[in-house]
């Protein structure tokens, strides 16, 4: 047998022996970004379908969380920056080749838009709400006229935001595990699934609850399909991609991924949701917590595994 032993004298902190430059901040930020995208997509979509009165939680209530979710996400992104006093440099130009750059710009546009979106529903959900100043009232009236246009823009931007949370990682060919274009759609779908689970949990009416439970079941099905696809792609790839896949097929990530993300985060909740649709009693909080926790786990594991996968030379 021919053996190859590589010894390196390099010992840079956080780089060697295994890359670990991204801790909890980045996966947490990706999770919140995906969740915000999911909530906005459902809200805008069902507005366009004129179902705002039938689905009040999805359309009017859930978006209230979005500015806060994005805010927390941005704080955790800032916490990750090691040269944070220069963070404003992000907004001195747009670099299309860098997902980090256009992602930051997308967030920059979507944040005020999501606040405006929340504002146009406030009078609907709190009948006593008073904007006090005439200028504000006029602005809100004006925004309401453009509700449909806003909804269309929001759907487009939210899809970009949801995809970006995955593309941010898949743009790095230096880390074979991330280097698959399925990560964009996978993270978008899982963000949608977490928001569907939350909407279904908070909804007060049977119609809304059942609709979003059904939507979540379909989304989880798509996610499972994409996960299989991800591994098929890696296993049919080059040696470094095959090695990356093996971290999950016998390697260090096997148990956390298949037990916690796939088992407890996808299969068990989908089973419970099917039972729910069949009118069996399932405490509503259980599938919701499982889906959301699985979502978070997925991002933590993917961010960590990517950094552990590398080219050998």
């Amino acid at each position: 047998m021919i053996e190859e032993i590589i010894t390196s004298g390099r010992m840079n902190p956080e780089i060697d022996p295994m890359l670990h430059v991204w801790g909890w901040e980045i996966p947490f930020y990706l999770f919140l970004g995906g969740l915000s995208a999911g909530i906005l997509i459902f809200s805008a979509y069902f507005t366009l379908r004129n179902r705002q009165d039938e689905l009040p939680i999805a359309v009017k209530w859930m978006p209230i969380a979005v500015p806060f979710l994005i805010g927390i996400g941005l704080i955790s992104l800032l916490l990750d920056l090691s040269h944070v006093l220069y963070a404003w440099q992000l907004f001195t130009n747009i670099r299309w080749e860098s997902p980090m750059s256009w992602g930051a710009w997308t967030l920059m546009i979507i944040t005020p838009l999501s606040i405006a979106w929340v504002a146009i529903w406030l009078e609907d959900i709190f009948p006593k709400w008073d904007w006090k100043f005439d200028e504000v009232k006029a602005t809100i009236r004006w925004l309401k006229e453009y509700r449909r246009t806003m909804a269309q823009i929001l759907i487009l931007l939210s899809i970009i935001l949801g995809m970006y949370t995955g593309i941010l990682l898949s743009a790095f060919n230096a880390r074979p595990f991330w280097n698959t274009s399925i990560l964009g759609p996978l993270f978008l779908t899982s963000g949608l699934s977490a928001s569907a689970a939350l909407i279904s949990f908070f909804s007060k009416t049977e119609v809304e609850k059942r609709l979003f439970t059904r939507i979540d079941i379909i989304l989880i099905g798509i996610e499972l399909f994409m996960i299989i696809h991800l591994f098929m792609g890696h296993l049919a790839g080059t040696q470094v991609h095959i090695q990356a896949a093996h971290m999950f097929l016998g390697g260090a990530y096997t148990v956390p991924f298949w037990v916690f993300v796939v088992g407890l985060g996808l299969l068990l909740p989908v089973f419970l949701e099917i039972l729910e649709l069949k009118h069996k009693f399932v405490p509503a909080i259980v599938p919701m917590v499982l889906v959301v926790a699985g979502n978070l786990m997925l991002r933590f594991i993917v961010v960590s595994a990517g950094q552990a996968s590398r080219w050998l030379y």
């Binding site: 840079n12 956080e14 430059v21 920056l81 220069y86 980090m100 060919n173």
Partner: peptide, 22 residues
């Protein structure tokens, strides 16, 4: 360029040789 770097580490994760450090 130090004064333009925000420390996002995208460049570190994108270098297949791990030639960079913080």
């Amino acid at each position: 360029e130090e004064s333009e770097c925000i420390g996002c580490k995208a460049c570190i994760t994108s270098c297949p040789y791990d030639a960079r450090f913080i």
